[in-house]
Design a protein around this nucleic acid. Structure first.
Lengths: 220, 220
DNA sequence: TAGTACAGTGAACGTATGTTCACTGAAAGC
DNA sequence: GCTTTCAGTGAACATACGTTCACTGTACTA
């Protein structure tokens, strides 16, 4: 019976200031949605009640944090953006693998997708379907990601002869190819190492084609 | 009061044999779903009742044709496959545009997507999200499409030095890039010719990168 | 021509949904 | 210390849903 300072739901939930507590349950809703998506449900077919149930809240509590499901979706998109940024940072930190840079990056990516499968499932799923607002938000996030990737290429001296616009275009192509591969990876039946190897190999080769083309590109 | 041979619903529905009539209402259900998707609904968030309502049928009639919504979805995927085949046939029929072959093909594609927007909206939407069964069916259809495209390249003598496997891999990349572009095209606010031009230009350039890379590819 | 098969109906069911409302109790502000 | 604020509650609502069932009337079959 110690520490009963939390308002109502205290589950190892060592409260704090009011706004902190609010932020914490907001995060609980986000996590609940992600957990359900990880269960294979697809964000579009999630219901408000399902989410609050998973979060251990009354349905009405939802409205204290989001106007509707779309707004929750936008929060998920933002979290997806953060995830992508972290991916780049991690890749940067590890530096360029000495020999096979492309395959190395793909390995990092593969692990990353597997580790945060719910986030990638959400992005891959809502990128084409779902609501217009969410789709556009994802597009924006993708484009930011592509820009950041282009910056990294500049910093690394990769493809130095390309204009910024062209580099951006190429990174856009890389990003869509990545997200497409993510969708494939996530649908792999568990434990199918052979199938996974082929898939990854295909992915690597597609990227190789792109970079070959990029190296040969001449600004018209 | 002439011609009252149709069972119940006769709306310019000049019946025929029994199986023909059944096939016709089956098609009505498919069309209804497509119409609703065209209205911006997204297949995943369609309900059985919504579809039968749109088709002018009682809800229970649905079960005479499909076990559940997923089965209807698979029928839509098949129709998507037919659409893609038709696209290739049309591109073949028009032959290779004399000068700018790539931009020409993209123009054909752009028109095609606009003309059958509902089908492409469905494919682009369910490709990443939706149910596992539908996703896999779409993947199969995509891969068939890629194979057929590879065959066409072979017949045209494009990229003759590439192995079949490599050509297939590259066509796969082209297909995902196409479908991705379709999603973008369909989300364009109507009448934004400038924005559309940029989008198409970007699409053309991405394909150019791919083909440049393909031409430079050397089998390891 | 009598009998069967079966596409489509309409009513009924149980269940789940989104949203509202007055409420409670603890933290924050004075 | 008294008052205000507000995150979260629980009950209630109207609505929509998927699915079932016995049924009807027509096209086929023998």
């Amino acid at each position: 019976m110690t520490a009963k300072r939390t308002p109502t739901r205290a589950d190892g939930d060592v409260a704090g200031t009011r706004v902190e507590q609010k932020e914490r349950t907001r995060q609980r809703l986000i996590d609940a949605a992600l957990a359900l998506i990880g269960g294979g449900s697809g964000f579009t077919s999630l219901s408000l009640r399902e989410i609050t149930r998973q979060a251990g809240l009354a349905p009405a509590a939802f409205y204290r944090h989001f106007r509707d499901l779309d707004e929750l979706g936008l929060a998920l998109v933002e979290m997806g953006g953060v995830t992508l940024r972290r991916l780049l940072r991690e890749a940067r930190r590890d530096g360029i693998p000495p020999t096979d840079m492309l395959r190395g990056s793909v390995q990092i990516y593969r692990r990353f997708v597997a580790d945060r499968s719910e986030v990638f499932r959400f992005i891959a799923g809502e990128r084409g379907g779902g609501s217009r607002a969410i789709r556009n938000a994802i597009r924006t996030e993708e484009s930011h990601f592509a820009s950041e990737m282009a910056q990294d290429f500049r910093a690394l001296g990769t493809l130095p002869e390309l204009s910024s616009a062209t580099l951006q275009m190429i990174c856009g192509l890389v990003v869509t190819t990545m997200l497409n591969a993510a969708s494939d990876i996530l649908d792999l039946p568990a434990g199918q190492t052979q199938q996974e190897r082929e898939l990854i190999e295909n992915f690597v080769r597609q990227l190789r084609v792109i970079f070959l083309g990029a190296a040969r590109w001449r600004e018209s």
